[in-house]
């Protein structure tokens, strides 16, 4: 035991590095394949290094549209989720009202409901509303899991702000909505960014709702990749699209790195 404790620092670093290598393995594989021609093209042999896979993304109108769709529905989703989640998070953090704990649990229950279970009626409901095959439909469906998570994250950030600030503001004559708008929101900017990032992350990669809600139109990246599989799959192109689809997330991840871990500070209401 003593021996372990003495070298604890080194063991920790080795363990973390080992896991990072494990994490990077499939990604390295993907990157390698993305820069190689995997199907014979003009003047290119299989296995030759090339950038053609990436230029392929730019020239394929379906793929270009898919990137546009993905960005659109994630942005719409964030624009719905954050304004709806913010007042709810404020209420859970600051007020005690009848049934608050049960309501919070009910919200979390929606997060843990498997999307497969709800696919059929969601599809019917959305066709009745006329928002199937549009980015708006996916954006709305993804609120099912993004909204509870956002409420959870935001109420953690709001709880970290001292109550005295609310009280001073009320004495100064602020109403609650005005206080939230002009004092609270500037204070929890980081929290809003973290919540938006998690919305992006869970929404960008989701496939179950994305699949059933886009049969003809409005396909996101994940579905556009699916469409690339066929009798002769250009796996290099598939990997290049996947790599490109991770780029925006990786940039956001890097920008958020110092706030990321603060999102889930306080676990419960």
């Amino acid at each position: 035991m003593k021996l372990i404790y003495r070298h604890l620092g080194a063991i920790k670093i080795v363990a973390l590095l080992a896991f990072m290598v494990f994490v990077c393995l499939p990604l390295v594989q993907m990157t390698l394949l993305a820069f190689v021609a995997t199907l014979p093209h003009e003047e290119l042999e299989v296995g030759q290094a090339t950038l053609q896979n990436f230029s392929g993304i730019l020239t394929d109108p379906n793929l270009r549209a898919a990137f546009g769709n993905s960005i659109a529905y994630v942005l719409i989703n964030i624009c719905i989720t954050i304004p709806v989640a913010l007042p709810a998070a404020y209420a859970f953090s600051r007020m005690s009202f009848v049934g608050d704990k049960s309501l919070f649990l009910a919200f979390i229950a929606f997060r843990i409901t498997p999307p497969v279970v709800l696919t059929l009626p969601v599809f019917q409901l959305f066709s009745a509303l006329g928002i199937v095959n549009s980015v708006f439909g996916i954006a709305l469906a993804h609120c099912l899991f993004n909204l509870p998570i956002s409420i959870w994250i935001l109420q953690g950030f709001i709880s970290a702000i001292p109550r005295e600030m609310d009280e001073t503001a009320f004495i100064d004559g602020y109403s609650r909505p005005r206080f939230i708008w002009s004092i609270l929101i500037p204070q929890i900017r980081a929290g809003i960014a973290v919540a938006a990032f998690f919305c992006f992350m869970f929404s960008w990669v989701e496939v179950v709702f994305a699949r059933i809600l886009t049969t003809t139109n409005g396909k996101p990246i994940s579905m556009a990749i699916n469409a690339l599989f066929g009798f002769q799959t250009d796996i290099g192109l598939v990997m290049a699209v996947t790599l490109a689809s991770m780029a925006p997330g990786a940039v956001l991840l890097f920008a958020m790195r110092n706030h990321l871990s603060r999102g889930f500070r306080i676990g419960q209401v």
Binding site: P26, M201, V205, V207, I221, N226, L253
Partner: peptide
């Protein structure tokens, strides 16, 4: 990073 990969991939 793995959280950013589309699930079907």
């Amino acid at each position: 990073l793995p959280l950013l990969v589309p699930w079907n991939m």
